[in-house]
């Protein structure tokens, strides 16, 4: 049981790292600020590469989130053990998955989203990501856990 918890944590952390990095890579900033000049980080300025990495990381994240959710359901307990900050992060991740899913749909061929909805989706997705980063930083520093 302990090991699965640890594995989950590793998968979550690695996925979060790549999904955030590739997410920021959607904006043309890594080249401007020399970050993609660092050996090994050239891919951060390649938009099609970061796009694919973002999608792959999203697939892992969605699978992981659903796995944990159903694990909770099958075990029939534990919901009351989730901490306040844990709940907050869950809401943020859910929001990221929902807004992200709409963006994936938007990118499919023959899909025309209205201009305003594209802008709102972009802003919501970025804002949720920033919030998740700050809350995650806070919980890490204060050593707050997902469950008690």
């Amino acid at each position: 049981m302990k090991t699965t918890g640890k594995t989950r944590k590793y998968i979550y952390t690695i996925t979060l790292f790549f999904i955030v990095l590739s997410g920021f890579g959607q904006m043309p900033i890594f080249k401007r600020y020399y970050i993609s000049d660092i050996p090994g980080l050239g891919w951060l300025a390649q938009f099609y590469v970061t796009h694919i990495i973002h999608y792959v990381a999203a697939i892992v994240l969605i699978a992981l989130v659903i796995y944990i959710l159903f694990d909770f359901i099958f075990n029939g307990s534990g919901l009351n053990k989730i901490t306040g900050s844990g709940y907050f992060k869950i809401v943020l991740i859910a929001g990221l998955i929902v807004s992200g899913s709409f963006m994936v749909i938007k990118n499919l061929p023959d899909i025309y989203f209205s201009h305003n909805s594209i802008i709102v989706l972009d802003l919501v997705h970025v804002s949720l990501c920033m919030m998740l980063l700050f809350v995650s930083l806070y919980t890490r520093i204060r050593k707050k856990r997902w469950v008690n």
Partner: peptide, 17 residues
């Protein structure tokens, strides 16, 4: 590639369950 991965994304929740 993105379009193909989008299809794979539909399988992700099933894999989780």
């Amino acid at each position: 590639d993105g379009t193909n991965l989008a299809k794979a994304m539909l399988i992700a929740p099933l894999a989780g369950v």
